[in-house]
Design a protein around this nucleic acid. Structure first.
Lengths: 193, 193
DNA sequence: CTTTTTTAGTTAGCCGCCTAACCATCTGCT
DNA sequence: AGCAGATGGTTAGGCGGCTAACTAAAAAAG
């Protein structure tokens, strides 16, 4: 989600000035919006940089994580993890849905993952339209080796926030998320009417 | 910044489980991280959907906004807006810098904007390496027509948050932003050593 | 004044995202 | 049984990111 995220966010006075010209401009809303996009992008790029050192992109990493979750569930980690989620995505369609991309995109991601030997496509014996995507042992090792650094970065990023600040942040973001999905819903309703 | 933003964020208990296997996993940090990316992406896509109705992308819109800002500064809006920022970006290099993309990317964006008649490239008379990018009148009208809806969406997105919640959110995001740029800085220091 | 280095912009080629169109297969309705 | 529609996956083509390599011009070094 790059761009539009001006390196230097406008000063609040400028937003106030803008509100005089555009009565629709709500300065505090705009400020929050700009900061949210900017922070999201910055955090995203921190992780992307880390992943790129291991020659993998966020997108492919996301797919590996989804599949890896499925494996965890099936084999069991020895703990009582199993109660957490019902089933893991297996087919390209499920993966696309879980990752929030189109099937066409998922085809491309699986293509490159398969080319790099991290994933295998296997035909479904019951439904010949379907494929089953599996991690290779190479991918297992890869993910297991990558995760600790990933978690360390998260911890360092959030280090300046106390536990209660983190809770507050999550609560505020959840509100925004809700409001965004309502906007999406009404938009699609309008489109269908 | 799409993907990795699993549609359904993991429950907190799952993160606690994960922390047993991976001691590096800080559950509250991970939760905040996931929510931040998720919310940022969702908000981003709300705006992108709106812009796409007017056949323009976030990237191109960002460029228009940067140029439009320059114009505002030069002509003056009649208000005392001028004190806000010193100068506006004009050349592709300045635009790329302000938008946080590479020059190559900016070349592409300007290409399509020029093709759509929203922007003109003019050679700099003093330095023959440089180009000056200007908005066309068509672009002026386009932006002026687009902005109110843009601002309305911001307001609706942030509606569930009170003024003080917005301030809190901005403060928290600023902390994260700072911590992210420190991480970036140390990473590049390591690389250069 | 020539040579080297720096800087502005573009080009070429990869990746991941999209939409739209396309087979193949399965399912449901007569 | 047979056909229409739904569903799973891929392909084709476009866009917007990126890096790396290149050209032209200006600035710096000698």
């Amino acid at each position: 989600m790059p761009l539009l995220l001006l390196k230097d966010l406008p000063r609040y006075e400028c937003l106030l000035e803008g509100a005089k010209v555009y009565p629709e401009l709500d300065p505090s809303a705009c400020e929050a919006y700009l900061h949210l996009l900017r922070a999201g992008d910055e955090v995203f790029s921190v992780f992307e940089r880390n992943l790129s050192e291991h020659t993998i992109s966020q997108g492919r990493f996301g797919v590996l994580m989804l599949l890896w979750n499925s494996v965890q569930r099936r084999t069991g980690t020895g703990d009582a993890t199993d109660a957490c989620r019902p089933a893991g995505p297996r087919t390209p369609a499920e993966l696309a849905d879980a990752a929030g991309v189109t099937r066409a995109t998922m085809t491309g991601l699986i293509d490159t993952l398969e080319r790099d030997g991290l994933v295998r496509r296997e035909p479904d014996p019951d439904d010949r339209r379907m494929m089953s995507v599996r991690l290779t042992p190479k991918a297992d090792a890869f993910v297991a080796q990558l995760l600790p650094a990933h978690f360390r970065i998260m911890a360092r990023l959030m280090a300046p926030l106390s536990e209660s600040e983190r809770k507050t942040l999550v609560a505020l973001l959840t509100k925004i998320l809700q409001s965004a999905s309502e906007l999406t819903a009404t938009a699609s309703t309008h489109a269908s009417s």
